[in-house]
Amino acid sequence: MAEAAPQTSPDTELLHAIARGDESALAALYDRYNSILLGLLLRILHSRVEAEDVLQEVFLQIWQRAANFDETRGRAFTWMVTLARSRAIDRLRSLQSRQRADDTALRDAPDSGVGDAVEDVYHGEQREIVRAALAEIPEEQRRALLLAYFEGLTQAEIAERLGQPLGTVKTRMRSGMSKLRDLLGGKMGRGAGLNF
């Protein structure tokens, strides 16, 4: 076995430890990502109360489902973020349908302020990489991507929202995604080992 073993990221190791029932590994994963995930949940839900509630759900699900994570099928970071986003979109939809039912305000204290104070160096770097990549993507493509990701809209809903033909929207989203992927290249997750 002289060949280079596939490198496992610290996140992958944490998920494996969590699957073995290691509570301190879950605590470590929480300490590493609570803020970044809360940012995501706030952007989707626009409510501190709902976002914190979903954040708790997300970490409970990570605890319960860690054994299902398979590193041969994707990165640990992607697995975790995908889980968090889909919990948040589920919550958003149930809040929206409840809101339609009784027409009360969905949003409480919106936490939209930028608080770089709570961000560590590693996440700050990752954020810069993503910001720079998004800045290079044409506005109308970027807009469609963000509507899908943060508002949970489907291609047809985005077409309706933007008043554009469905075909145009699909093409924009496809080009936007492949540009984003190419611009990020292998830059994401680098340096992840430095904190550990």
Partner: peptide
């Protein structure tokens, strides 16, 4: 999917 997940960094960090 990796590219989509990186959009998490397009959300502002919480105050």
């Amino acid at each position: 999917r990796d590219a989509a997940a990186s959009l998490v960094y397009a959300a502002a960090p919480p105050r």
